[in-house]
Computed example of a mutant assay.
Amino acid sequence: MIAFSFNGEELHPSSPEEVGRLLDRVEQAKEFELWAFAPNGRSLCMLRNDDDAWLMYLRQEGDSGFSSRSSVHRPGTATFRLCNGQVDEYPRSWCIDIEQCYKAMAYFFENAGAKPDWINWNED
């Protein structure tokens, strides 16, 4: 079963409907760190700060993984607060549509940790 972590709080939805409710709850926060963990070691992370959000997909713990890329030019950087309070800065060119991030989280859940292919990924 896919487990989630929302700003450090572990959550264990058991159906697509429960994932939908979890994402509705997440949407209320404008700044967060959301992880989804599959039993096979794959994980998907979404970082959001207001209108900026991006994804990171890892094949296993310690993997350099993949990060999302925007299909439109987005100059500059955006800051994101991790659940441990650390603030990191990432290029806005990594940020994608927030709804696409939520769709990717639901897809990851429904497909046992598969990487959403419609996201423009960069292998890091």
Rank of each mutant, 00 (worst) to 15 (best):
N49A: 11
F80M: 09
H73G: 06
N49M: 05
S5Y: 01
L23N: 00
W54D: 03
D97E: 12
G41L: 15
P39W: 05
R74Y: 01
K103P: 00
K30Y: 12
G41P: 13
S68F: 03
P91Y: 01
E89R: 10
D63R: 07
G41I: 15
L22H: 01
D97T: 00
H73N: 14
L47S: 07
W35H: 15
I2L: 07
M56W: 08
G85N: 10
M46L: 13
E17P: 01
Q86M: 12
S43M: 12
W35T: 05
V19I: 05
E17R: 08
D97K: 03
W35N: 11
G76M: 07
G41Y: 13
G85W: 12
Q86D: 12
S5C: 12
S5H: 04
E10K: 13
L44M: 12
L11Q: 07
V87H: 05
A3P: 00
W94V: 01
F80D: 03
R59E: 14
A29T: 12
N84E: 06
L55I: 10
L34W: 06
N84Q: 03
Q60G: 02
G76N: 10
L47D: 06
G20P: 08
H12W: 14
S67V: 15
F66M: 11
F32I: 14
K30P: 05
G65L: 08
D97W: 02
C45I: 11
R21E: 13
D50I: 11
